[in-house]
Computed example of a mutant assay.
Amino acid sequence: MPSILITGCSSGIGYYCAKALQAEGYQVFATARQQKDVERLLNEGLQSTRLDLTDSQSIDDALTWLLEQTNGQLDALFNNGAYGQPGAVEDLSRQTLRQQFETNLFGTHELTCKVIKLMRKQGHGRIIQNSSVLGLITMKYRGAYNASKFALEGLTDTLRQELSDTPIKVSLIEPGPIESDFRKNAHKAFNANIDIESSAHKNTYIAVQKRLANTNAKQKNDTFTLGPEAVYNALKHALESRHPKARYYVTFPTKLFAVLRRLLSTRGLDWVLNKISNSENK
């Protein structure tokens, strides 16, 4: 029974994948940042513990607990935990940007490096990083998240090259719009860290607030929004294929932008992305 550690399992992609993999016979270790979510996962029959990517001690404690359950083995790591910090680049304080990177990059990096040592020792392993379409292209008012995912992509590409002569396989999953609590969590981060009233972008932020507060199922991009099972299908292939892909593009927008980034000039791509941003923030 293969074992897998998944971060960010309180909801959305992480939660769905943890439940689905367990149903497939995997030994799933589903982690979450808040203890209340850990308790809920435990009550639902998952093996779970607290793992806060901003806290090195929490990472160490979670790994110690996991390895006690598996006799020191771990077959796979799915780095899914992340959040989005909205706001114009000029309105991001150093601390706000640091917080975004602590979760989306630094904590993920620290956990991954610890797991690599284990996988080298046992002679096998799979590492799957959950990135984003915003690791391929950028959009306005998402600068912190864009930067963290671009950094994750660069670090992961380098890691894959450095591990190419080992049995450890590394893959990136790049979702686009997926049904999750991402928007709700982004709204909280926006309210907590952006000074709307003193910003040159105040008028646009009114529309940003409205968009983020709209957690109803029907959205403008509902046609292109897929359920978390779309990411699960990519994850399963990355875990089980003899030759997993370096990248998995999930959702039509991600596949489209992957092509446009190669075909269009920088100015042309900026025009397309600005049109989309301006439309959604009216």
Rank of each mutant, 00 (worst) to 15 (best):
D60A: 13
Y145S: 14
A147V: 05
T138W: 12
L51E: 09
K114T: 06
L155T: 07
E153M: 06
M139D: 10
E153P: 02
T112K: 08
V115C: 13
S132R: 11
K117G: 15
Q69I: 02
R50S: 10
T108L: 14
I137A: 08
S164Q: 13
V133Y: 08
Q95D: 15
S56N: 13
F106E: 05
G123R: 11
V133P: 03
L66P: 06
L77C: 07
K140S: 14
S56Q: 14
T54M: 09
G87D: 01
V89H: 01
R98L: 14
I59S: 07
Y141M: 13
T103I: 01
T54K: 10
T103Q: 02
G154Y: 06
Q122G: 11
L67N: 00
Q100V: 03
Q129S: 03
T96S: 15
L105W: 04
N146C: 15
L77W: 00
D91K: 09
T112F: 10
S148T: 03
D157A: 07
Q95V: 07
Q57R: 13
D91F: 07
G81F: 00
T54F: 01
K140P: 08
I137L: 10
N80S: 09
R160S: 05
Q73R: 13
R160L: 07
K140F: 09
T49G: 00
L63W: 11
I116G: 05
